[in-house]
Nucleic acid binder design. Structure first.
Lengths: 241, 241
DNA sequence: CGCACTGTTGATTCCTATCAAGTATGGTGG
DNA sequence: CCACCATACTTGATAGGAATCAACAGTGCG
């Protein structure tokens, strides 16, 4: 079972992949050197400005991606323009909905980001031949499902205050998984995005930030930088006892 | 690739499985006769009264299940008792969260139901050896993820009226996939459950039912039986143009 | 400097929750 | 058989939280 990944010696791993931080966290970690080489022939890295769209709701999926750096938001819009963010993906997550030609959601960079694209048909073929890869994608789907259901509780049953606190807690715990100190971070989303994620309006989000600040649950600098002096206290405000 | 399933002749398929309607729809459809026989040695069918718990939030997962008949609700509860239904599963869905020992949600029968249990370790072992089976579970996870994200839009951005109409539309399209006529059906959930699914109170749900009834979008008999004269009209009330 | 954009704060409205009462149905036991 | 009770649902009155409408502050940019 350990025949894959002799890459301790980086034997035949493509150069770009060798330098890639997402290689072990993303889907690439389960691939052999040959498979990586094959996939690499068709893959391409792209830098995305904040707000750049990776794919639009209803469009045909041509690429899957790995997020190398940054945060990508997944959104759904109603015909009249109402919008809901249904997921946030952080590096080095896989981005895409396997086995479906048409995307039910749109994906766009929430922050300045970098992604690595693979053509859909290439990866789909690779998945068919590589149970390890399907397993990896399955795990990712299950993780996203768990997160989606957690968020359903937040959307359906929490107050505005609890929603905002839940969001801050989510960001604190996801923005930099490497870091030991989660008590200080930059928000990857604008107030408008946060509102769309929480099912609130911008104004309500802003008011709740102010309230949390006045109660010394958080400190805010330059609108985007947040410090949490007591993470447990934030968690209590989020309704997660 | 077509060596599996010589079951056109029902050669060596276990008797219970042969009579099982869920065999093709559930996970069992991808298994060979031998695998079915093996799995069948450890599986057991159970009848569930409405309200019976399959597994509780935080409990250790010992079984996966196939839903043979009925509707199962997946719920999350907060420490103070607030509750949210995060998913509805209909026969012949697979029920369970692969690869996790502890359940993050509870599952209980919404209607009188019947399920077929397999021990977790038996199925986990089978999954490792059977890429087809993992693929099937992967597909199921992705389906649930799509549904969860659809519902997030409903929870976050729709009015009470739209939520109730969305719920009715969901049930109409899921309760009996065989049936051509989706315009008449029994609700599998009580008003309290519907409220927990929609992030509303019982009273609000009741009022919206009354309103939709008075606007002739639906008819209701005996509280549970619903008739929809014009499905497109219901869809418009649900905000799905 | 003026303009666009993002975010905050205030006043008011409106939708849904809450509190409360009432109806309908079914089961139980005297 | 019927009085009694529990449960599920509906309806009404009121309260409260978030949305809406509006004004204003801070920042970056051409």
């Amino acid at each position: 079972m350990e025949i894959r990944r002799q890459d301790i010696h980086n034997s035949d791993i493509p150069l770009v992949c060798r330098a890639c931080e997402a290689r072990h966290g993303g889907v690439c970690g389960v691939l052999t050197a040959e498979q990586l080489t094959e996939l690499n022939k068709h893959s391409s890295r792209h830098r995305l400005d904040s707000g750049a769209e990776v794919i639009g709701q209803g469009e045909t999926v041509v690429n899957y991606s790995n997020i190398m750096r940054g945060v990508v938001k997944l959104t759904k819009v109603m015909a009249d323009g109402r919008q809901q963010i249904v997921g946030l993906q952080f590096a080095p997550d896989f981005l895409g909905r396997p086995f479906l030609a048409e995307s039910a959601i749109s994906a766009e960079a929430a922050t300045e980001s970098e992604i690595c694209n693979f053509p859909r048909n290439v990866l789909d073929r690779l998945v068919k031949r590589t149970p390890e890869l399907e397993h990896r994608l399955h795990q990712q789907a299950l993780k996203e499902l768990d997160e989606a259901r957690d968020w359903m509780l937040t959307l359906g049953r929490k107050s505005a205050q609890e929603k905002v606190a839940s969001f801050l807690y989510l960001i604190a715990t996801h923005i930099d998984p490497e870091s030991v100190d989660m008590s200080s971070f930059d928000l990857p989303l604008s107030r408008a995005d946060i509102a769309d994620f929480l099912g609130l309006t911008i104004e309500t989000v802003s008011r709740q930030f102010t309230k949390l600040r006045k109660e010394n649950v958080i400190r805010i600098e330059n609108n985007r930088h947040v410090t949490v002096p007591d993470m447990d206290r934030l968690m209590r405000h989020a309704g997660n006892d």
